[in-house]
């Protein structure tokens, strides 16, 4: 059950997409989101989808992983689809029965929204699949660094993110272990009413909190022992460097945005 969580899951590889500078990848992802929200026609949206699917092919991430990231969002997709389908009533009526009325307007909006959300999920999971969490937070720190001028603690924010991301797998593992230990003592997590199940979580949550506090304390101590004192004058083991391929990628992305806008206007 816990193994299915894919947030921040890095899928190591050596493709072009993997090797792109992480800052460039974040910028491209944002540009791609713009690409998804600019168009009002299926043509423009289609170009955006071609872009993200092309990037997916280039990354050589198994197709299965893409489906895996979509799976938990199926309820949301269905919900959005159904809401749009039934509650938008513009255009010709396709089907009518008592209170239910489906119109062409509703159907196209529903399809549009679903494709848009699928695109969003694929795009953002592609970013986390191809970029290690450390590279990602490094890039965020660098991209946000102008905000230091207005006294935003950028380094601290990035450090908190790094730590949080770093501890997701650890905490998942820990939860798994505690769950196993309590199951071995006959804890029943799968059956019973909602209240019974909520109560069954107590033996898992308390040890989890206790160990998280212990871990936080240990980590703080370890950081202090290594003289951590914030971002001032801190250097990096891996410097972010842009290569020609990064400029090419940015150029291609800009091209796709232009195409999207054009397709939307012309067709």
């Amino acid at each position: 059950m816990l193994k299915d969580i894919t947030i921040g899951q890095f899928f190591p590889g050596n493709s072009v997409v993997h090797r792109l500078d992480s800052r460039v990848k974040i910028i491209i992802t944002i540009a791609f989101i713009v690409m998804l929200f600019l168009p009002n026609s299926f043509y423009g949206l289609g170009i955006g989808m071609v872009f993200v699917l092309g990037a997916f092919l280039l990354s050589r991430i198994p197709f299965k992983m893409m489906l895996k990231s979509l799976k938990p969002l199926i309820p949301i997709l269905l919900f959005t689809g159904i809401l749009n389908l039934f509650f938008i009533s513009t255009g010709d009526v396709l089907f009518e029965w008592k209170l239910i009325k489906i119109t062409t307007g509703g159907a196209t909006t529903a399809a549009f929204m679903i494709i848009r959300i699928i695109g969003l999920i694929i795009g953002s999971s592609l970013l986390t699949y191809t970029t290690s969490p450390i590279a990602l937070t490094d890039a965020i720190e660098r991209l946000l660094s102008p905000l230091k001028k207005i006294k935003l603690p950028v380094h601290e924010l990035a450090m908190m993110m790094t730590i949080a991301l770093r501890f997701i797998p650890t905490l998942i593992e820990e939860t798994d272990k505690i769950m196993s230990a309590q199951k071995a003592r006959g804890a029943d997590l799968e059956t019973g009413s909602l209240i019974q199940r909520a109560k069954a979580l107590v033996p898992i949550l308390i040890p989890l909190f206790v160990s998280s506090f212990r871990r936080a304390e240990d980590l703080a101590l370890a950081m202090e022992c290594r003289c951590y004192h914030g971002g001032e004058g801190r250097t990096r083991l891996k410097q972010l460097k842009t290569a020609p391929r990064d400029y090419i990628a940015l150029f291609v992305t800009a091209g796709f945005i232009a195409l999207t806008v054009l397709a939307d206007k012309m067709l």
Binding site: K177, I178, S180, A181, Q182, A184, R185, V202, P203, I206, P207, V210, S211
Partner: peptide, 13 residues
């Protein structure tokens, strides 16, 4: 089959 995990004290609640 009773199973006592490593560091079982972390399961106390």
């Amino acid at each position: 089959v009773g199973l006592v995990f490593q560091y079982p004290e972390y399961q106390l609640f």
